[in-house]
Protein backbone atom coordinates (compact mmCIF):
# COMPACT_ATOMS: atom_id res chain seq x y z
CA UNK A 1 0.00 0.00 0.00
CA UNK A 2 2.69 2.46 1.01
CA UNK A 3 4.54 1.72 -2.19
CA UNK A 4 1.52 2.85 -4.15
CA UNK A 5 1.48 6.14 -2.26
CA UNK A 6 5.14 6.53 -2.93
CA UNK A 7 4.58 5.98 -6.62
CA UNK A 8 1.80 8.54 -6.66
CA UNK A 9 4.03 10.96 -4.82
CA UNK A 10 6.84 10.45 -7.28
CA UNK A 11 4.48 10.88 -10.16
CA UNK A 12 3.22 14.16 -8.74
CA UNK A 13 6.77 15.30 -8.19
CA UNK A 14 7.29 14.83 -11.90
CA UNK A 15 4.59 17.34 -12.56
CA UNK A 16 5.88 20.03 -10.35
CA UNK A 17 9.42 20.00 -9.21
CA UNK A 18 10.93 23.24 -7.98
CA UNK A 19 14.64 23.16 -8.44
CA UNK A 20 14.27 20.80 -11.37
CA UNK A 21 16.98 22.68 -13.23
CA UNK A 22 19.43 21.85 -10.47
CA UNK A 23 19.90 18.47 -12.03
CA UNK A 24 21.01 20.09 -15.24
CA UNK A 25 23.65 22.49 -16.41
CA UNK A 26 22.37 26.01 -16.12
CA UNK A 27 20.10 28.27 -14.19
CA UNK A 28 19.69 31.47 -16.13
CA UNK A 29 19.03 34.63 -14.26
CA UNK A 30 19.03 38.37 -14.72
CA UNK A 31 20.30 40.74 -12.09
CA UNK A 32 18.79 44.20 -12.34
CA UNK A 33 20.67 46.95 -10.56
CA UNK A 34 17.98 49.56 -10.16
CA UNK A 35 20.55 51.95 -8.81
CA UNK A 36 21.99 52.02 -12.31
CA UNK A 37 18.74 51.97 -14.27
CA UNK A 38 17.73 55.44 -15.34
CA UNK A 39 14.44 54.44 -16.94
CA UNK A 40 15.54 55.19 -20.50
CA UNK A 41 13.56 52.28 -21.97
CA UNK A 42 16.16 51.24 -24.52
CA UNK A 43 15.55 47.73 -23.23
CA UNK A 44 11.88 47.96 -24.11
CA UNK A 45 12.47 48.80 -27.75
CA UNK A 46 15.29 46.27 -27.96
CA UNK A 47 12.86 43.61 -26.85
CA UNK A 48 10.32 44.75 -29.44
CA UNK A 49 12.95 44.46 -32.14
CA UNK A 50 14.30 41.11 -31.07
CA UNK A 51 11.07 39.35 -30.28
CA UNK A 52 8.70 40.48 -33.03
CA UNK A 53 6.45 42.18 -30.54
CA UNK A 54 3.32 43.58 -32.14
CA UNK A 55 2.23 47.19 -31.96
CA UNK A 56 -1.36 47.70 -30.90
CA UNK A 57 -1.93 51.40 -31.58
CA UNK A 58 -3.47 54.07 -29.43
CA UNK A 59 -6.78 52.26 -29.03
CA UNK A 60 -5.00 49.05 -28.14
CA UNK A 61 -2.92 50.85 -25.52
CA UNK A 62 -6.04 52.46 -24.15
CA UNK A 63 -7.55 49.01 -23.82
CA UNK A 64 -4.48 48.01 -21.79
CA UNK A 65 -3.31 45.57 -24.40
CA UNK A 66 0.17 46.93 -24.97
CA UNK A 67 2.60 44.10 -25.57
CA UNK A 68 5.68 45.28 -23.72
CA UNK A 69 7.31 42.10 -22.49
CA UNK A 70 9.50 44.28 -20.38
CA UNK A 71 8.14 47.43 -18.86
CA UNK A 72 9.64 50.15 -16.74
CA UNK A 73 7.36 50.73 -13.82
CA UNK A 74 7.59 54.21 -12.43
CA UNK A 75 6.36 55.20 -9.02
CA UNK A 76 6.27 58.72 -7.67
CA UNK A 77 6.40 59.42 -3.96
CA UNK A 78 5.90 62.64 -2.11
CA UNK A 79 4.55 66.01 -3.06
CA UNK A 80 6.25 68.92 -4.72
CA UNK A 81 9.02 69.86 -4.03
CA UNK A 82 10.02 66.66 -2.23
CA UNK A 83 9.32 64.33 -5.09
CA UNK A 84 10.99 60.98 -5.37
CA UNK A 85 10.70 58.89 -8.49
CA UNK A 86 11.60 55.25 -8.71
CA UNK A 87 11.97 53.09 -11.80
CA UNK A 88 12.04 49.35 -12.08
CA UNK A 89 12.25 47.16 -15.17
CA UNK A 90 9.85 44.23 -14.90
CA UNK A 91 10.10 41.31 -17.27
CA UNK A 92 9.08 37.69 -16.72
CA UNK A 93 10.73 36.73 -13.48
CA UNK A 94 11.21 33.12 -14.61
CA UNK A 95 9.87 31.90 -11.30
CA UNK A 96 11.13 28.56 -10.12
CA UNK A 97 7.83 27.89 -8.39
CA UNK A 98 5.98 29.62 -11.18
CA UNK A 99 2.37 30.35 -10.32
CA UNK A 100 1.56 30.56 -14.01
CA UNK A 101 2.68 27.01 -14.62
CA UNK A 102 0.23 25.31 -12.31
CA UNK A 103 -2.55 27.19 -14.03
CA UNK A 104 -2.02 25.96 -17.54
CA UNK A 105 -4.17 22.91 -18.25
CA UNK A 106 -2.25 21.88 -21.35
CA UNK A 107 1.38 22.43 -20.35
CA UNK A 108 1.71 25.28 -22.78
CA UNK A 109 3.78 26.95 -20.15
CA UNK A 110 6.20 24.77 -18.26
CA UNK A 111 9.61 24.72 -16.70
CA UNK A 112 12.64 23.76 -18.70
CA UNK A 113 15.97 22.34 -17.71
CA UNK A 114 17.59 25.74 -17.47
CA UNK A 115 15.18 26.99 -14.86
CA UNK A 116 13.22 28.96 -17.43
CA UNK A 117 9.50 29.29 -17.62
CA UNK A 118 8.87 28.40 -21.24
CA UNK A 119 5.89 29.33 -23.31
CA UNK A 120 4.86 26.97 -26.11
CA UNK A 121 2.74 29.07 -28.42
CA UNK A 122 1.56 26.13 -30.48
CA UNK A 123 0.17 24.37 -27.48
CA UNK A 124 -1.64 27.31 -25.92
CA UNK A 125 -5.41 27.24 -26.11
CA UNK A 126 -5.89 30.65 -24.55
CA UNK A 127 -7.48 30.07 -21.19
CA UNK A 128 -5.77 33.13 -19.64
CA UNK A 129 -5.13 31.17 -16.46
CA UNK A 130 -1.39 31.64 -16.54
CA UNK A 131 -1.77 35.39 -16.95
CA UNK A 132 -4.26 35.57 -14.14
CA UNK A 133 -2.01 33.59 -11.83
CA UNK A 134 1.15 35.48 -12.72
CA UNK A 135 1.78 37.89 -9.84
CA UNK A 136 4.06 40.04 -11.97
CA UNK A 137 1.56 40.82 -14.73
CA UNK A 138 4.08 40.13 -17.45
CA UNK A 139 1.95 37.97 -19.70
CA UNK A 140 0.48 39.38 -22.88
CA UNK A 141 -2.31 37.94 -24.96
CA UNK A 142 -2.87 38.03 -28.70
CA UNK A 143 -6.33 39.53 -28.67
CA UNK A 144 -6.38 39.84 -32.43
CA UNK A 145 -4.24 38.89 -35.34
CA UNK A 146 -1.64 41.63 -35.22
CA UNK A 147 0.09 42.26 -38.49
CA UNK A 148 2.67 44.97 -39.04
CA UNK A 149 1.98 47.27 -41.96
CA UNK A 150 3.99 46.15 -44.94
CA UNK A 151 6.94 46.32 -45.36
CA UNK A 152 7.62 46.63 -41.64
CA UNK A 153 7.26 42.86 -41.55
CA UNK A 154 10.59 42.56 -43.33
CA UNK A 155 12.24 43.41 -40.08
CA UNK A 156 10.69 40.45 -38.25
CA UNK A 157 13.31 38.27 -36.61
CA UNK A 158 13.23 34.83 -38.23
CA UNK A 159 14.60 33.27 -35.06
CA UNK A 160 11.43 34.11 -33.18
CA UNK A 161 7.93 32.85 -33.86
CA UNK A 162 5.27 35.35 -34.82
CA UNK A 163 2.40 34.55 -32.51
CA UNK A 164 -1.08 33.94 -33.80
CA UNK A 165 -4.37 35.19 -32.46
CA UNK A 166 -5.53 33.53 -29.28
CA UNK A 167 -2.23 32.62 -27.67
CA UNK A 168 -0.43 33.91 -24.65
CA UNK A 169 3.14 35.20 -24.73
CA UNK A 170 5.73 36.76 -22.47
CA UNK A 171 9.40 37.45 -22.04
CA UNK A 172 11.40 34.32 -22.81
CA UNK A 173 14.79 35.56 -21.61
CA UNK A 174 15.45 35.63 -25.36
CA UNK A 175 15.58 31.87 -25.45
CA UNK A 176 16.63 31.95 -29.10
CA UNK A 177 19.91 33.54 -28.08
CA UNK A 178 20.35 31.01 -25.31
CA UNK A 179 19.76 28.25 -27.83
CA UNK A 180 22.36 29.61 -30.22
CA UNK A 181 24.95 29.89 -27.51
CA UNK A 182 24.21 26.44 -26.13
CA UNK A 183 24.48 24.94 -29.60
CA UNK A 184 27.77 26.66 -30.18
CA UNK A 185 29.04 25.48 -26.80
CA UNK A 186 27.89 21.95 -27.52
CA UNK A 187 29.70 21.94 -30.85
CA UNK A 188 32.86 22.93 -29.06
CA UNK A 189 32.19 20.57 -26.17
CA UNK A 190 32.29 23.18 -23.46
CA UNK A 191 29.95 25.05 -21.17
CA UNK A 192 28.45 28.35 -22.19
CA UNK A 193 30.85 31.04 -21.12
CA UNK A 194 29.84 33.78 -18.75
CA UNK A 195 28.73 36.80 -20.73
CA UNK A 196 28.39 34.82 -23.94
CA UNK A 197 24.63 35.23 -23.90
CA UNK A 198 23.04 38.61 -23.80
CA UNK A 199 19.28 38.90 -24.13
CA UNK A 200 18.30 41.89 -26.23
CA UNK A 201 17.36 44.07 -23.27
CA UNK A 202 20.56 43.27 -21.42
CA UNK A 203 22.58 43.90 -24.53
CA UNK A 204 21.06 47.28 -25.18
CA UNK A 205 20.94 48.74 -21.68
CA UNK A 206 23.14 51.84 -21.78
CA UNK A 207 23.64 52.06 -18.05
CA UNK A 208 24.59 48.44 -17.57
CA UNK A 209 21.70 47.91 -15.19
CA UNK A 210 20.98 44.44 -16.52
CA UNK A 211 23.24 41.42 -16.26
CA UNK A 212 22.43 37.97 -17.55
CA UNK A 213 24.10 34.75 -16.64
CA UNK A 214 24.16 31.39 -14.98
CA UNK A 215 23.43 31.21 -11.27
CA UNK A 216 24.77 27.69 -11.08
CA UNK A 217 28.23 28.99 -11.83
CA UNK A 218 29.37 30.58 -8.58
CA UNK A 219 31.94 32.67 -10.41
CA UNK A 220 29.60 34.16 -12.94
CA UNK A 221 28.87 37.87 -12.92
CA UNK A 222 25.24 37.27 -11.95
CA UNK A 223 26.26 35.04 -9.07
CA UNK A 224 28.66 37.69 -7.89
CA UNK A 225 26.04 40.41 -8.13
CA UNK A 226 23.39 38.21 -6.59
CA UNK A 227 25.50 38.01 -3.47
CA UNK A 228 25.26 41.77 -3.10
CA UNK A 229 23.83 43.03 0.12
CA UNK A 230 21.44 45.13 -1.89
CA UNK A 231 19.85 41.99 -3.28
CA UNK A 232 16.10 41.47 -3.13
CA UNK A 233 13.38 39.96 -5.24
CA UNK A 234 10.03 41.52 -5.97
CA UNK A 235 7.23 40.06 -3.85
CA UNK A 236 9.55 37.52 -2.29
CA UNK A 237 6.77 36.71 0.16
CA UNK A 238 4.68 35.17 -2.60
CA UNK A 239 7.19 32.36 -2.69
CA UNK A 240 7.33 32.18 -6.47
CA UNK A 241 11.11 32.04 -6.28
CA UNK A 242 11.91 34.34 -9.21
CA UNK A 243 15.13 34.15 -11.19
CA UNK A 244 15.25 37.90 -11.62
CA UNK A 245 17.19 39.44 -8.80
CA UNK A 246 17.09 43.14 -8.09
CA UNK A 247 19.69 45.27 -6.39
CA UNK A 248 18.12 47.99 -4.30
CA UNK A 249 18.25 51.58 -5.33
CA UNK A 250 20.31 53.82 -3.12
CA UNK A 251 18.03 56.68 -2.26
CA UNK A 252 17.70 59.18 0.49
CA UNK A 253 14.42 60.53 1.70
CA UNK A 254 14.54 63.04 -1.16
CA UNK A 255 15.10 65.95 1.15
CA UNK A 256 18.82 65.54 1.63
CA UNK A 257 18.93 67.65 4.79
CA UNK A 258 16.84 70.53 3.69
CA UNK A 259 19.04 72.89 5.61
Amino acid sequence: MSSIFKRIKDKLADYRRPGYYKEFDYHWAIVVDIDRCNGCEACVVACYAENNIPVVGKKGCDDARIFNWIRIEKYIEGEYPDVRVKFIPIMCQQCDRAPCEIGCPVYATYHNQDGLNVQVYNRCVGTFTCATYCPYDVRRFNWFTYKPDKPLDEQLNPDVTVREMGVMEKCTFCIQRIRYAKDAAKDEERRVRDGEIKPACVQSCPTGALTFGDLKDPNSEVSRLARSRRRYRVFEELNADPSVIYLKRVMGNGKRSHD
Binding site: I34, K74, K248, R249, V250, G252
Partner: peptide
Protein backbone atom coordinates in the same frame (compact mmCIF):
# COMPACT_ATOMS: atom_id res chain seq x y z
CA UNK B 1 -3.54 57.16 -23.25
CA UNK B 2 -1.05 56.37 -20.56
CA UNK B 3 0.25 53.00 -19.56
CA UNK B 4 0.68 53.54 -15.85
CA UNK B 5 -2.51 52.93 -13.92
CA UNK B 6 -1.40 54.92 -10.94
CA UNK B 7 1.66 56.86 -9.88
CA UNK B 8 1.69 55.38 -6.39
CA UNK B 9 3.24 52.20 -5.18
CA UNK B 10 0.75 51.68 -2.35
CA UNK B 11 3.51 50.65 0.01
CA UNK B 12 4.08 47.43 -1.86
CA UNK B 13 7.85 47.72 -1.85
CA UNK B 14 8.24 46.82 -5.48
CA UNK B 15 11.15 49.19 -5.83
CA UNK B 16 13.15 48.73 -2.68
CA UNK B 17 15.71 51.22 -1.56
CA UNK B 18 18.55 51.63 0.87
CA UNK B 19 19.58 54.98 2.20
CA UNK B 20 23.06 56.25 1.33
CA UNK B 21 24.03 55.73 4.96
CA UNK B 22 22.93 52.10 4.90
CA UNK B 23 24.73 51.68 1.62
Amino acid sequence: VKIEATKKEYGREIVQTVTPEEF
